[in-house]
Write a protein that binds this DNA or RNA. Sequence first.
DNA 1: TTGTAGGCGTTATCAG
DNA 2: CTGATAACGCCTACAA
Lengths: 336, 336
Amino acid sequence: MSTILDVAKLAGVSTATVSRVINSPDAVREPTRKKVRRAMEVCNYKYNALARGFVTKQSNTIGLIIPNINNPVFAESTQGVQDHADRNKVQVILGNTYYQYDQEENLIRTLREKQVDGLIITTTNPKGDVLKSLVEEKVPFVLLYSTIKKGPISAVGIDNYQGGYRATEHLVQLGHRRVGMVAGKFSISDRSLHRWHGYRQCLKNYGIAYDNSLLFQTDYSLTGGSVSVKKMLALKKSPTAVFCSNDYLALGAMKGARECGLSLPEDLSIVGFDDIQISSYVIPGLTTIHQPAYEMGQLGAKLLFRLMEEKQSKPVQVMLESSLVIRESTQKAATL
Amino acid sequence: MSTILDVAKLAGVSTATVSRVINSPDAVREPTRKKVRRAMEVCNYKYNALARGFVTKQSNTIGLIIPNINNPVFAESTQGVQDHADRNKVQVILGNTYYQYDQEENLIRTLREKQVDGLIITTTNPKGDVLKSLVEEKVPFVLLYSTIKKGPISAVGIDNYQGGYRATEHLVQLGHRRVGMVAGKFSISDRSLHRWHGYRQCLKNYGIAYDNSLLFQTDYSLTGGSVSVKKMLALKKSPTAVFCSNDYLALGAMKGARECGLSLPEDLSIVGFDDIQISSYVIPGLTTIHQPAYEMGQLGAKLLFRLMEEKQSKPVQVMLESSLVIRESTQKAATL
DNA sequence: TTGTAGGCGTTATCAG
DNA sequence: CTGATAACGCCTACAA
């Protein structure tokens, strides 16, 4: 593998000049440049970005930490950050935490050792020590899908409380009085927790007593949704409507409900959260809270790059708009 | 940021010793080790993996190139490679080509400059020059979702021809005589092309004349599937069954067909390809060709690591088993 | 078991 | 506009 030294020798110039034709071609005279370029070809010279990063202290790489690439929302936002990163000629290293905090810690450590220029994190524990040490040591990073509204951490997200409230309100306004919730485990997702807060407050505001036996916490998966809804339907006083804290869970719930012999939406109204693409392709179309995942990723990357450029810049929290998308999986409660 | 030199000074040892406690702790005596460890804490020493990579010529990083992370199959296989990489303490840099060859070239170049130890590629053009130069220059890499059966390139995939054949055969055996195909553009996906070959051969074997007006090439997306099927149904002699070259297309097609007023599967049988998770959660459940995406990713990574260890080792091509999964989206052709 | 010292490929600072 | 040369942080013979 040839180096700029080889090229320099062959072209009869110094390594400095070779480096210049690579990084600032205009700073070197036409004939010299040509000579060097030719020499590079002859040597089959390959640029070593690692060596560069080593001296410039910039790897042109960022780390992206998400819970699970298999969930289409995260795929969507990942795409958002990737596209933006690509435009800035930086690569992204992807890591899954599977909603495990220690895995998140490991990833962050490894990525820092790899000298990434910044981090985009969908955290499992917004109050964990890792994030604290990140701000202490002034590592540029931004949180995604975050609920943080102020403080020293940059973050972009939506109002999960509001989303949960709206989803529930939709159901209540349809006349449903027994509304269950299938939620991602609160211990691993404060997003889920906030959505539940919204759900609960909404019930209260509409004068419906909160019934804890209608809350099921599960892991974020299709099967989780299916299993939970079945348990819920086995209850003596089973609900006529369910709010699921994400679409994946909701899609699972739809299947579970049908396997219990219900027909949708007649026997059970279901609303999800995220609005993943497939939700509008399913029958009945899933009523859900739309979350601008791609934009979120893109914006997160944009903020991160700003942070990386001017390390002084103040942390920013951005709340994106979410909205209720009404499709066919919800309908008026049967009047007895 | 402190370096091993700072640690060494503080601990009163040489940098070599510090390096040893990092890389081969057993090679240094207990008390020295402790001394060094303490010094590292005091300095808040952070290991610089980039510097290491620079000297050892190993970045402990691999590149993973896929068409589009938004397609759940690719998310699935990505997870497979990530999990395996993680076990080996290597990170993965992810890149999307969006089925564009020049994008693939760019990615490969950039990743090589970043000194990745190896590459896993779902290529858009198996005969392109990039792959050739990769083998020439002995860069360890393996192809994923590949159709290559022999030669100097390591690859893991399934028999797409066979898959296409089986999918079609299922339809034909159900009595369908007019069977359309919605395919990903052949120019960007030889997988799609091979599936079409299977489709075509099957028709031939069953004595059904091939009708080119029943083939629609489109981009791989839900809308692509929907739009294509609508065009197909607008035909004078529209088909009673459709084979879609992936599940995403098929899911789109289901929606498209319904928007034309058809009910499924009575008016139109649909079979997909991939068996993404959601396909079994949809109504009617999608009949499809199952492809072991996660295993494929995992195996691809496994092969790559072997290649990286012993650069001599012979290239290997592995064909994984695919299988027809019959669900409810296909049924017997109506007898007139 | 530990230390010395050279080197990895590139950039950056100064001169010229 | 170009050249010499000193870093950058770590690893690894080789020596002690």
